[in-house]
Design a binder for these strands. Structure first.
Lengths: 102, 102
DNA sequence: TCGTTTCATCGTAAAACTACGATAAACGAT
DNA sequence: ATCGTTTATCGTAGTTTTACGATGAAACGA
């Protein structure tokens, strides 16, 4: 019992932190997050104009950020508006902060 | 000129932050860093006893952490003693902190 | 209904990552 | 010199990532 009770919490925290970190592990994705955070939100097209990569590539990065839970997309008819997922953003910030303060 | 002066700084910061984040993007590497940080330092063998992975796998993760600049190894004859690279650790902490506070 | 716009997804190719066993290198001790 | 210990590296296989062009889907306006 003790064995099962000791690990899971930090195990899960590590898994979650690793997921966030992995999502942050590419310069283009960092840039996307910075752009989304500086202006409230962004359409995909706005990002394509600023970031030097193909539209499909940016869409792929957006999907990874979405899968990691760091952003969320809201359909706004012909377009899709992306925003930071504030709840998970805060969670990620906390996990990183705790990690570096150990 | 303006074009060249505007980007490079944050470009480089993003590259560096992405490198750190990528290194943190695996649960085993997080665990290694936590172990190195909790006790001052560690020999590879100590890690192998605690982490459920082959010795070669752990050595590979150690190399990636070293390449990212987060740890450093000191040869201590038959063994190698690994420690956190405190300077880069601090740098990473700052980069993450700034990133999340934007 | 027919384009147009916007974005995601598919298909593909190259590169990188992950994990392992086997092997090699370095060194102390016998 | 040879052996045992410790660790890195090699070779390998399977998976994942990255990037792109091409294609598809959804929604709107003409």
């Amino acid at each position: 019992m003790k064995v099962l009770a000791e690990q899971p919490i930090s195990e899960n925290a590590n898994q979650e932190l690793a997921r966030f970190a992995k999502a942050l592990g590419h310069p283009t994705r960092l840039q996307i997050l910075q752009l989304l955070d500086s202006q409230a939100c962004c359409f995909t097209g706005d990002l394509v104009e600023v970031i030097p990569a193909a539209q499909s590539t940016i869409s792929q990065h957006l999907r990874e950020l979405k899968n990691a839970g760091l952003i969320q997309g809201e359909i706004n008819p012909p377009r899709v508006k992306y925003c930071i997922n504030k709840e998970n953003w805060r969670k990620a910030k906390l996990l990183f902060t705790h990690f570096f303060e150990e």
